[in-house]
Design a protein around this nucleic acid. Structure first.
Lengths: 101, 101
DNA sequence: ACCATATGCAAGTGACGGCTTGCCTATCAA
DNA sequence: TTGATAGGCAAGCCGTCACTTGCATATGGT
């Protein structure tokens, strides 16, 4: 197996990892160095390259990121399908605008 | 303010807290003792009452649970509206059943 | 071959989170 | 008032997590 249910929520628990998902949403298929650069310039993330690499490993284990090697580059692609589990678990029957008595 | 964006994901990061949300989805407005009982019998959660109480505090800080006092009882109600932030952040343009090439 | 680029592996550290333990407060019924 | 029920506060322990540091591997250009 590639990861249990808890890995998804664990992956989302970190601020930097959520920023990585934001960046991949804006521009899919970036390399590690591209992501590092964007996090530093746009979000003032001062973490080292290894830290970002470890974050990407967590995101990949959660199924939110899939990687594709090409030569010495490794491109990271976003996969938002696991996120639907969140919606389907608790938002099933709730109405968007519900009044409380 | 009642909590920043990160509190929501932090609240979802714990397994026991997700089980609490499950139980409140199935039966809304339970007391602390009711939740403790259901977690113990249905999910083999051996945590103490104080542990569950602290979990409920985290869920309330994240805006996922709202409480209502009545005498010596404190009823916990589910509010799933904060969960929509997850959908709107990363699932904006993705289609529900999308094929990958 | 040589060097720069792009990434990987592994050990160590500091802080935060989940849990327990112990005691305290508040409400209701007899 | 007394006792039982429902919940709250606070300190401490321990494991996990994010991060750094140092070194290693692999690809591409010259």
């Amino acid at each position: 197996m590639v990861g249990d249910v808890g890995d998804l929520y664990q992956a989302l628990a970190d601020h930097t990892r959520r920023l990585i998902l934001d960046e991949l949403t804006e521009r899919d298929g970036q390399t590690l160095f591209e992501i590092c650069g964007r996090l530093a310039t746009k979000h003032q993330v001062t973490s080292s390259r290894q830290a970002i690499s470890q974050h990407l490993d967590v995101l990949e284990a959660a199924g939110l990121v899939v990687t594709r090697r090409q030569g010495r580059y490794k491109f990271h692609h976003l996969d938002t399908r696991p996120l639907r589990a969140v919606t389907e678990r608790w938002l099933r029957s709730a109405e968007p605008t519900q009044e409380n008595p």
